[in-house]
Design a protein around this nucleic acid. Structure first.
Length: 507
RNA sequence: GGUCGGUUCGUCUAACGGUUAGGACUCAAGAUUUUCAUUCUUGCAAUAGGGGUUCGAUUCCCCUACCGACUACCA
């Protein structure tokens, strides 16, 4: 191993909202960087001028911030290798592309998009795949078969050109992946990839990626498995540039798969199956919105935790990890090779774990904030009481409201099945007695209410269920929910009695 | 089609030649409980198939099947 300072980069393209697979890649990069006291760099790969989406870069930044990822170098943070946006580095790439041509590792190609398209279709109709490689490159319109003068003339004429990598024939490339081990590919199966295009004077991903990783002194490239097929090209580029000594180590992460069915997790799955695939809410320009984990009520710690355990595990039975613990425990050896199906149910469970762990004070504050967005005022004491008995039965703060609306709204209707089951002939009389008992209480909290009701039931010889179930029905209109005494405390003495009387009158 | 990668309960995964194949999510049952929930207990449920190697394969090798990625002047 080298003793170089560890430097990793997360390099998304701003073509839309970052999806959770991307967030996980960023996370793994971050764990590794922090574990080794290294740097985490955010580089924006916007070399595709066609697919640029306004707002996407801000979205990426905001997402990483929400997750608790601190960027050491990036567009906003700056750094010694600025700029960190590839579109602002175009001057750099051209010289490296030219260097490759000068050294015979690449060449100019003037083929038109149409002619390539035709060749592709032709090959297809024969049942073949069209590969731009050693077999055909000499029959194409390239600098390989033209004089230097002709090449310069065509360029000067404004002919469109690209620079292609001259992939050698029949060479075994041996590569090491931190997760997959040794991978070998024969160069004859590869093609002459475009490295630079005259249309926008920008490099393609491969050239930009390799030169920037080199210039930014990246030591570890941690990215999604979809990049594994282009690893040989990247290795060849490092060789062609003479940078093998400083070539980074590679780790290709397994993909995130759909919860059910085939294929990798995609944008559409979220809406279709009712869970977010993006960290934050996203509004596209045509007005479509995609939900986000943040807006759905996930805690960032829970979100980070659940993503970390997709494709990685500590080898112990621990499942709940703080960011600090993840940084400490993460290792490539324990990253899985196979893709991981995303399970929305388990995601909720993670959030529940964090919710239950939080103090009632913290939850009360969050609940008050949430209720304020609904335009409902809740006192701190009331909020504290509510979260204390509701937290074990919900996964999200907003669920407390959804499941406990009756604490704020007096029931208008009484659930029919419950009435049939619990509201007996003698119930009205018993309820009137309960009102008498409760009216005498000076301190109206759940403890006293419970105690006095128990005493009352014992003295009268009524069954616990008989009284309590009818009482709950009267108070809430339904037969399930939190403890009767808790409900009484939250809605208060006056409201409790009013609700009982209303039930007696209307049932 | 080609290249590369992968394959343990429905899902996330543990077991890096010897275990009754373990845990978690989900689901089901029971106990506790004034309901619901919590909690506790229990249960359901897996090594893709076939060949090797070996005293012994989830684990190593090969083949098949299946899954995935890539196969753009996109990343």
């Amino acid at each position: 191993m080298t003793n170089k300072r560890v430097r990793v980069r997360f390099a998304p393209s701003p073509t839309g909202p970052l999806h959770i697979g991307g967030v996980r890649t960023a996370l793994f990069n971050y764990f590794f960087a922090r574990q080794n006291g290294g740097d985490f760099i955010l580089r924006i790969e916007d070399t595709d001028s066609q697919r640029f989406v306004p707002g996407a870069e801000e979205y990426i930044n905001e997402s990483l911030r929400w997750c608790g990822i601190k960027i050491d170098e990036g567009v906003a943070e700056g750094g010694k290798h600025a700029p960190y946006r590839q579109s602002e580095r175009r001057a750099i790439y051209r010289q490296y592309a030219d260097q490759l041509v000068a050294n015979g590792y690449a060449y100019f190609a003037f083929d038109s998009a149409e002619s390539l398209d035709n060749l592709r279709k032709e090959a297809e109709s024969r049942g073949d795949a069209f590969t731009y490689n050693f077999k055909i490159r000499n029959s194409m319109e390239t600098s390989l078969v033209m004089s230097e003068q002709e090449v310069q003339e065509r360029i000067a004429n404004g002919d469109q050109w690209v620079i292609r990598f001259k992939m050698p024939e029949n060479e075994e490339i041996h590569m090491t992946d931190l997760i997959r081990g040794e991978v070998t590919v024969n160069t004859s199966t590869l093609d002459d990839k475009v490295l630079f295009k005259s249309s926008d004077l920008l490099p393609t991903y491969h050239l930009a990626n390799v030169t920037d990783d080199y210039l930014m002194e990246i030591t570890h490239v941690i990215r999604g498995e979809e990049w594994l097929p282009s690893l040989p090209l990247h290795v060849m580029l490092y060789r062609a540039f003479g940078w093998t000594e400083s070539m980074p180590q590679f780790a290709h992460l397994p993909l995130l798969l759909k919860p059910t069915g085939n294929g990798k997790l995609s944008k559409r799955d979220g809406d279709k199956m009712g869970f977010p695939v993006f960290p934050l809410l996203w509004k596209s320009q045509d007005g479509e919105t995609s939900r986000g984990y943040r807006e759905d009520g996930y805690f960032p710690e829970a979100f980070v935790n659940l993503l970390a355990l997709l494709g990685w595990n500590p080898g112990t039975e621990q499942e709940i990890f703080s960011m600090g613990e993840l940084i400490e425990t993460f290792s490539f050896e324990r990253v899985n090779k196979a893709g991981a199906r995303f399970d929305p149910e388990k995601a909720k469970w993670f959030n529940h774990q964090y919710l239950v762990q939080k103090s009632d004070d913290e939850l009360a504050t969050l609940f008050i904030d949430f209720m304020n967005t609904k335009g409902i005022e809740v006192t701190p004491q009331k909020a504290l009481k509510i979260v204390s008995f509701m937290k074990v039965r919900v996964n999200f703060i907003h669920e407390i409201w959804e499941k406990a609306q009756f604490l704020f709204i007096s029931p208008e209707l009484y659930d029919e099945a419950s009435v049939k089951k619990f509201w007996k002939e003698e119930s009205p009389e018993i309820m009137k007695e309960v009102v008498c008992v409760l009216e005498k209480l000076e301190t109206f909290n759940s403890e006293f209410v419970e105690k006095s009701l128990e005493t009352f039931i014992a003295e009268k010889g009524y069954g616990m269920g008989k009284v309590m179930n009818a009482l709950r029905l009267g108070l809430l209109g339904i037969s399930n929910g939190p403890g009767v005494a808790d409900v009484c405390e939250v809605i208060g003495k006056k409201e409790t009695i009013a609700r009982i009387e209303k039930a007696v009158a209307s049932l």
